[in-house]
Structure formats: structure tokens, C-alpha cells
Design a protein around this nucleic acid. Structure first.
Length: 538
RNA sequence: GCGGGCGUAGCUCAGCUGGUAGAGCGUCUGCCUUCCAAGCAGAUGGUCGCGCGUUCGAAUCGCGUCGCCCGCUCCA
């Protein structure tokens, strides 16, 4: 059961240190999030997996890391200065928004003349290069990393002797002054992109578009977002970006915000290489490009077979790291039963839920759609209360639920049962887990147990390079729960048997390795830990 | 950016019609031969988002601002 509400992920993130709202102590800065101790590990793991899959495991890819600041002309010829920059007005009567240059002081929707002043709206963040802020110093923070690849096309070609088809991969920050950043990590103003520009012979672009679609779906499945959880949106012509001939959007069904894009796979044709080239008239471009009088290069490729110069077509799979991390977390999230609660406790929650739902159905304070949503979810939970008890909290967070007095009582009844009989677990793929192994002493004030545990921890993180934590600040059950919550796949416990002081002397020199998902335990000799973990963490 | 709702300890919330804040959980420390959050004892933690105003006095009223949520918009 993946997350049923975004609040579950938001709350876990804050509580355990995945993501924090940016600049929080000064009241925040809309559209920014900071990656905490666990978030940065998850993010790095995602990026590394993407890089390994797309660069190391293929033989047709190169990497690149271009500057965020680029010559302003890049954005002139890429089309961003034009398409990311509009004067907008809002209609105060019907709340619609229009491009000021498209209407004549009258709202086309309702005919009202009550419009706001035109405001220039630029999706690109501007800045100055150099200390003098005159117009010649204007620069932008890149709104996509792709342009860094296009302007380096000739450099990469010259230095690697690549033949078509080949691709260039890049991971880096991009910045967009979104109208309305919202939905946690989903729409932010500063985000990290994982982008590939894959250059192919014109005419082979459609086949390669399909191949990349399949390759990308396979990657998502590999990080725990299976094919059946993704829908493919074949973007209709009138919604395509200015550079695209065809785009597949991969869509994930996030809790609360619904089906949303997690990756775009665009056929950018010869638009970008053509746009950034000089002598465009001689290049047989198929894309309509702005006349370029500034570029010093022809971004083309000499095809030895046809003995002709061609401008390659480009297939662009482009995904955001934050959105990816969010989808991975939602998919991995589970709250599940660990030991059956006593029937009488469950019954009192069931009664509380029944009373709450009855109160909801009678209430005249609720908007009908809110009432119906609460009732539908509530009845589904009531139908399988033992398994779905963890969904009570999200139910009570639905709009309108807090207007019902009984919601507080119900929460109070459910909370202790949840605390004691359920666990939160992130079923992350081990290679994405922020922490790979946790090491515990069974008894924290026993000198030798502690020393052994610390030593194992040091070894795993130092020599094996596995992110490992040591924790002795609670009873063993609590320590396991803490690690479950952040997705640590393995917990190692050092006990009296390890020291040869237990009941069975044969256990000397061994530790308990406990599996996150099954909660099963293995007794493993310390000397074999490395092989054991390497096998399981693959 | 527009409209609606909201903003009290790390989390979930209480604090009614104004008199300078509480609970549960969490976190931390000590004790316990303690393997799945259940013992005992103690501790930390909030200038009630921020600012201005009304008032003898504001978490509680008004205005502004920042942030969050829902809708319009957006599209990695």
C-alpha cells in the first residue's frame, strides 16, 4: 500500500530529515526545499543510479556538466527569452489571466474592463554578470540544463569521435520562476534535472523515441516505480513546447495532487542544434528557427556513409530529481500491522469511526463534495479496519473533517493502537536507501557489546563504503522501528551471544541481521558480514 | 498572481466570548542479560509565523506581510 496522502510523506520528511522548507527560520522562501541528512543521501542515490544506467551501462553516452550561467544569446536563440517572457493581466471579475498583447483592455471571457496592470512575467530568473548592473550584464539562471548540452555539441563531438547515434547526459540545477510553486517538492523554483540529449540521424528519430520510452520505463521500474503505476501521455500538438515535434509524458499518480508528470521524453527535432548554428539556410533544417547572426558554429555532423553533413535530430528524456524522489517515497511508503491489536481496542475504534461517519452524514456544515469524499473513504476503511487503520489520520485530514467534533475523539482512540501495533516502513530499493545498515548494541551500558557494535559500524562505513548508523538510544524494538521508517534495509544487533556469553557458545562471533521487509533475522558471523551484505544490497 | 481556508513545542492537537500557554507522542539522560515502539526515574523544548495597530492588558480583535493547503494557472 503506497502513501494515501501527501501529508504522510511531508510529515515523515520533516520528522526524520528528508526535506525541509527552504529558509524556514526567516519565514521561508516559496518554492524552495532543502535536502536534509536523509534527503541528500536519497537524492545522490537516485542520481547515481540514473548516471550508472544511462552512462556506464550503455556504450553510446558521454557525460557533461555545463555552467548554470550562460551567455544571454543562448536563451535568445533557444526561444526561451520569447516564450518564457509575457506581459500578463488578470481579470478581476472572472479571475482569468491573459497575455496583455493578446487582448485589448477587455476580458475576452466576461467582457469586463476591470483588469490588473500588465505585469511582465518572466519564467527565467535574471541576474547580472559582473558588478555593474547595466543592460549588457543581463544573464539568466538556466531554466533547463539542455542548452548546456546543445552549445557543447561540437566540443563533445570533436573530443570523443562519437558517431551517431550517441547521447550526452547531464545532471544539474535549473531555475524557473514558477507562477505558483506548490505541492511540496512537486513544483519548485529551483530543482535538479537529469537530462539526456540523444542525437540521431534524421529519419531514425521516431524509432529512437520509442526506444527511449522503453528504456526510461525500465529505469523507473528499477527504482521502485513499476510500469503499471505509470501512464504515458502522448502530448497533443497544441500542448507541445515550442521545440517539440512529439512528446511522451510519463505520469505518476501522486496522493492528493493526482496524475502528474514525472518525466518528459521529447523529440526536439533539429530545432536546438539548428537554432544555435550559423549559416542556417545551408543546413536543410526541418524546424522553424530564428535567424541566427551571432553563432560562430555549424552544429552539424559529417555522416561518412552518405558523405553528407547533417544536423542530427534529438530525443530528450528529462526528469526532475525532486519529483522522482517524491514518487519513490510515495511508492515505498507503507504503514502496516505488526501484531494484532486486542479485539476490544479495535472495536472501540470501529465504534468511534461509525459514530464519526454518522455525524458526517448528518452534518450541515460540510460541503456536499467534502462530505461524500469523507464518507467514501471512511466506509472503505471501516470495511477493512485492521489493515486500513493507518488511513484514519489521512481521513481526518480531509477538507472539512476537522469541523466534525467527533474527529478529535476518533483520533485519540486510534493513536495509541497505531503506535503500538503498526509500523511505518519505507520499502525502498536497497541501493536507494539513505542508510544501508544500522548497528545496535542489545544493551547500551555494556562496555564490550557497545565496543563491538561501534567497531562493526566503523568497518562497514569505512572500509565497505556503506552508509551506516549506530544507535543505542532506545530499546531494540524502537530502534528497529526508527530504521524501518527511513527505509534502512538491514539492522545488525550485537548481543551477549556475540561475545560468547549467551546460552549457545556456537554463536560467539556472530551477530543478528534483521531484514526490513520480512523482519526475519539471520545469525551471521561477523567475518562474513561483508559478503552477506554485498549479496543482499546488489 | 487571483479567490477560499489555515499558521500554538520535532509531530498531532487543546487553549470558549482578550488577562502574558498545556496534553499525548517524539527527542535526550540514567536504571533494567531489553530482539521488534508497552518498564521505572528525570530532562530538553514555544517571544503562540512575522510586523504594525486597538487595549491597562492579545495566542485570542483589526490591518499588513511571509508561508502552507484547496481551486484557476503551470508542465521536470
Amino acid at each position: 500500500m503506497p502513501a494515501v496522502a501527501m501529508e504522510q510523506i511531508v510529515s515523515l520528511s520533516k520528522r526524520r530529515g528528508f526535506f525541509f522548507p527552504g529558509s524556514e527560520i526567516y519565514g521561508g522562501l516559496q518554492g524552495t526545499y532543502d535536502y536534509g541528512p536523509l534527503g541528500v543521501e536519497l537524492k545522490n542515490n537516485i542520481i547515481n543510479d540514473w548516471w550508472r544506467t544511462n552512462v556506464y551501462e550503455r556504450d553510446d553516452m558521454e557525460g557533461l556538466d555545463a555552467a548554470i550561467l550562460m551567455n544571454r544569446l543562448v536563451w535568445k536563440y533557444s526561444g526561451h527569452e520569447e516564450t518564457f517572457n509575457d506581459p500578463l493581466v488578470d481579470c478581476r471579475s472572472c479571475k482569468s489571466r491573459w497575455r496583455a498583447d493578446h487582448i485589448d483592455g477587455v476580458c475576452p471571457n466576461c467582457g469586463s474592463r476591470d483588469l490588473t496592470e500588465p505585469r511582465p512575467f518572466n519564467m527565467m530568473f535574471s541576474t547580472q554578470v559582473g558588478p555593474v548592473a547595466d543592460s549588457g550584464a543581463l544573464a539568466y539562471l538556466r531554466p533547463e540544463t539542455a542548452q548546456g548540452i546543445f552549445v557543447n555539441f561540437a566540443n563533445v563531438l570533436a573530443t570523443t569521435s562519437r558517431k551517431l547515434p550517441f547521447g550526452i547526459a547531464q545532471v544539474g540545477k535549473a531555475f524557473r520562476n514558477e507562477i505558483n510553486p506548490r505541492n511540496f517538492l512537486f513544483r519548485v523554483r529551483e530543482f535538479e534535472q537529469m537530462e539526456i540529449e540523444y542525437f540521431v540521424m534524421p529519419g531514425s528519430d521516431e524509432a529512437w523515441h520509442q526506444q527511449w520510452l522503453e528504456a526510461r520505463l525500465a529505469w523507473w521500474a528499477g527504482i521502485g516505480v513499476p510500469r503499471e503505476r505509470i501512464t504515458i501521455y502522448d502530448v497533443p500538438g497544441d500542448e507541445l513546447a515550442h521545440y517539440s515535434k512529439r512528446t511522451y509524458d510519463l505520469m505518476y499518480d501522486y496522493p492528493n495532487i493526482g496524475v502528474q508528470e514525472i518525466e518528459g521524453i521529447a523529440n526536439r527535432t533539429d530545432y536546438d542544434l539548428g537554432s544555435h548554428s550559423k549559416d542556417q539556410a545551408s543546413l536543410n533544417l526541418t524546424a522553424r528557427v530564428k535567424l541566427n547572426e551571432d553563432s560562430t558554429a555549424r552544429l552539424q555532423y559529417y555522416d561518412p556513409e552518405s558523405r553528407r553533413h547533417v544536423v542530427p535530430y534529438v530525443i530528450e528524456p528529462s526528469a526532475g530529481v525532486g519529483r522522482c524522489a517524491l514518487a519513490v517515497l510515495c511508492e515505498a511508503y507503507a504503514e502496516e500491522l505488526t501484531k494484532a491489536p486486542p479485539p476490544e481496542k479495535l472495536q472501540s475504534v470501529a465504534d468511534g469511526l461509525t459514530a464519526f461517519l454518522k455525524s458526517v452524514s448528518r452534518s450541515d456544515k460540510l460541503r456536499p463534495e467534502h462530505r461524500d469524499a469523507i464518507l467514501a473513504r471512511g466506509e472503505a476503511i471501516a470495511g477493512a479496519l485492521t489493515e486500513r487503520l493507518p488511513e484514519l489520520e489521512p481521513l481526518l485530514a480531509l477538507p472539512g473533517a476537522d469541523a466534525i467534533e467527533l474527529s478529535k475523539k476518533l483520533r485519540g482512540q486510534a493513536q495509541p493502537v497505531l503506535d503500538e501495533h503498526y509500523r511505518t516502513v519505507l520499502r525502498l530499493r536497497p541501493r536507494l536507501a539513505p542508510v544501508k545498515v544500522a548497528v545496535f548494541p542489545l544493551k547500551r551500558n555494556h562496555e564490550q557489546i557497545v565496543a563491538t557494535a561501534r567497531q562493526i559500524r566503523r568497518h562497514l562505513q569505512g572500509e565497505l563504503g556503506l552508509r551506516t548508523v549506530y544507535d543505542d538510544t532506545g530499546a531494540i524494538g524502537k530502534l528497529y522501528r526508527r530504521q524501518d521508517e527511513i527505509g534502512t534495509p538491514f539492522c545488525i544487533t550485537v548481543d551477549f551471544d556475540t561475545l560468547g556469553e549467551g546460552k549457545d557458545a556456537a554463536f560467539a562471533g556472530t551477530v543478528t541481521v534483521r531484514d526490513r521487509d520480512s523482519m526475519a533475522q539471520d545469525r551471521v558471523p561477523i567475518a562474513e558480514l561483508e559478503a552477506y551484505l554485498r549479496e543482499k544490497l546488489r
